[in-house]
Simulated assay, not measured.
Amino acid sequence: MTASANVAKALKGMHRYSSYGLSIQSDIVLPELAADTSDHKMDAPVVVVRNARISLDETTRAQATAFAFDETGATFWWQTVGRFHVSHDGCDVQVERAAGVSDDLIAFPLLGPVLSEVLRRNSMFVLHASAALIDEQGVAFLADKGTGKSSSVAALLRAGASLLADDLVALTPGAGHIVPGFSQIKIAPENLAHQLAGSDWVARPQVHDAIDKIRVLVPGAIVREKPPARRMYLLERGTGDVARIVPLPGAQALPAVLRFAYAARFGEGALRGADAGAHFRAAVDAANTIPVRRLILPGSLARLDGLAEVIRADLAQSEPR
């Protein structure tokens, strides 16, 4: 048992959640995550999220945002939110919030960049992407912020698909299965009116003026199994009225996967030595295992209702390998 697992065993009275195949014990209230009411399973990694004091040098403290990676793990700093430290084994997350910051605001970086590092250190390959299960087939949407990842997933959910993850897509190494995340998507306010699917979707209040997305809980939509990923779609915004899929030259698949790997957001310092090699091999496996396509979205995200049919038609095609 690791040192962090011993910490987990010793802590009592914490909130218990389950997400991305992890058993999470947390001092932070995280309503986005599914409650874990089962007895602890020895094969589910335990991750402890706890309030703690984290040392930070004055040079880093003076910056608005900073990341640091060393032999102890990874440290994240947002001046207006707080400090976070992920242990080397990815099983212990320390949180020191800035004065007056609520659990609701802490959840934004905790369930984004910080969680991505937890997943990577628990042997998953993490993409800046969103994913859904449509007709029992996993599809992932890779794109820069604001292109339409969450809106594309929402369109599939309205057409009967199930949610796998939003913003963080975790793949099992080698096999290329998508590990389910939690039942929330984030949608731009201007797209909210035509993205909500029904009364059970709950738009949550904004907690900071600088946050430009609305969190929407989609209860009951999350998948529990780990389906194989059948497609990765590189999203682009077009000018037409309907979505269309075009081929991507094979030589461009690996660069695309590496570009949208979540760790790439932290720069070269995040991956060193053996970690860098493992990351590259996981990207190669994903690019070789999962077909990659370009998906040109309509000029207006209000015109995504036909996206499911476009995806289904593409999935029905045999794949030349």
Rank of each mutant, 00 (worst) to 15 (best):
M1C: 05
T2Y: 03
A3N: 11
S4C: 09
A8M: 05
A8N: 04
G13W: 02
M14C: 12
Y17E: 00
S19Y: 02
S19R: 00
S19V: 04
Y20G: 03
S26R: 00
I28S: 01
V29N: 15
P31H: 13
L33E: 06
L33H: 10
A35T: 13
D36G: 10
T37A: 12
K41R: 15
D43E: 06
A44Y: 12
V47T: 02
N51E: 09
N51C: 13
R53D: 05
S55F: 14
S55G: 14
T59M: 09
Q63N: 04
A66C: 14
F67R: 10
A68K: 12
T72F: 01
F76R: 00
W78G: 07
Q79H: 14
R83F: 07
H88D: 15
D89N: 07
D89L: 00
G90P: 05
C91S: 06
D92H: 02
V93G: 00
Q94S: 06
E96G: 03
E96P: 02
V101Y: 09
D103I: 14
A107G: 01
A107S: 12
P109W: 15
L115I: 08
N122K: 00
M124T: 13
F125H: 08
V126F: 03
L127C: 02
H128Q: 08
A129E: 02
A132M: 01
L133I: 13
D135W: 10
D135L: 05
Q137G: 15
G138N: 06
V139W: 01
F141Q: 03
D144A: 11
T147M: 03
G148F: 01
K149G: 10
G160K: 01
A161L: 04
D166Q: 06
D167T: 02
T172G: 05
G174D: 11
H177P: 15
I178F: 05
P180N: 09
K186I: 09
I187W: 07
I187G: 15
N191K: 04
N191L: 14
N191E: 14
N191I: 11
L192T: 01
H194A: 10
Q195A: 13
G198Q: 05
S199H: 11
A203K: 03
R204M: 08
R204A: 14
R204W: 06
P205H: 05
H208F: 11
I211R: 06
D212F: 02
D212Y: 13
K213T: 01
I214D: 02
V216D: 00
V216E: 00
E225T: 13
M232W: 15
L234C: 02
E236L: 08
T239Y: 12
D241R: 06
P247C: 09
L248W: 11
P249L: 12
A251N: 09
A253R: 03
A253F: 03
L254R: 03
A256N: 10
V257D: 08
R259Q: 13
F260D: 04
E268M: 14
G273S: 00
G273D: 06
D275F: 07
G277H: 11
A278L: 04
R281W: 08
A287R: 04
N288A: 14
R294E: 00
I296K: 04
G299Q: 12
G299S: 02
S300D: 09
L301F: 02
A302N: 10
G306T: 07
L307T: 00
V310M: 10
L315I: 04
A316C: 05
Q317P: 12
Q317C: 14
S318N: 15
E319G: 15
P320K: 07
R321S: 08
